[in-house]
């Protein structure tokens, strides 16, 4: 296994070749906020929270979706990045309908977590109040589009881990929404195995088990990684 070395916020770190910048950042004992990324799923680089500066590079790079290269010098927490991250979180809140006090994920929500992490105490952008619906057609689970941040974790876990590919994204721009099957009510999609992986990995209160009410959701984002590792390394016990 060949190894590359790079520098993260002044710390030297060595990682296996082929590692992502995110892995390098973690190896250095540091962290960046992430939302769309989930260990165990292929990265998409959509939420832009993990962007980092690379010395000598013109553009910011998404740490989750960029391969680390030898000799890179990256910075993860400059004033510029802090400003952009805060704005991104404000945009997330303003584009959906988030009323945390009445949310199934209140207290267990990764969007709330990143808001805290970036110090987002209010949105300078006016809330948009989009018209969105709730799909409660499934026997066990529901999808509340008002709280969906389009991270596509559900799409990916269902496709890449469960192999059912129930979810997709429809429309474009601010009209984007997650659809089940061929834009059917979720409960009518025969491909759904009711495994609940999408609910496990959803970072917000968008996907939840029907029996959960306010602040009762118990997500399990680690499952994607556990399953992937188990299958790839034939290790079924933790």
């Amino acid at each position: 296994m060949s190894v590359i070395t790079l520098q993260v916020d002044g710390r030297d770190v060595a990682v296996p070749a082929g590692s992502t910048l995110l892995q390098a950042i973690r190896a250095a004992g540091l962290s960046v906020p992430t939302l769309c990324h989930l260990d165990g799923l292929d990265p998409v680089g959509a939420c832009r929270l993990c962007l980092v500066e690379v010395e000598g590079g013109q553009r910011l790079l998404p740490a989750c979706a960029s391969e680390a290269s030898e000799g890179q010098v990256i910075r993860t927490d400059t004033a510029q990045l802090q400003g952009y991250r805060r704005m991104a979180v404000e945009l997330f809140f303003a584009e959906g309908n988030h009323v945390c006090a009445f949310c199934v994920a209140n207290g267990q929500c990764e969007l709330q977590d990143v808001a805290v992490a970036v110090g987002m105490d209010h949105s300078r952008f006016p809330y948009q109040y989009p018209q969105r619906s709730v799909d409660a057609s499934h026997r066990h689970f529901s999808l509340d589009h008002n709280r969906c941040i389009l991270c596509t974790r559900c799409v990916r876990v269902c496709d890449q881990i469960e192999g059912a590919h129930v979810w997709d994204v429809a429309e474009r721009g601010s009209d984007c929404r997650i659809v089940a099957g061929l834009d059917q009510p979720w409960g009518e999609v025969e491909a759904c195995t009711s495994c609940g992986k999408c609910v496990d990995v959803c970072p917000t209160g968008a996907l939840y088990a029907n029996e959960d009410t306010t602040a009762e959701k118990h997500p399990h984002p680690e499952r994607a990684h556990q399953l992937r590792r188990a299958r790839e390394h034939q290790q079924w016990l933790r």
Partner: peptide, 9 residues
């Protein structure tokens, strides 16, 4: 700063 001071909800 931090979850004690900032979290919504």
């Amino acid at each position: 700063e931090g979850a004690a001071m900032l979290r919504f909800g």
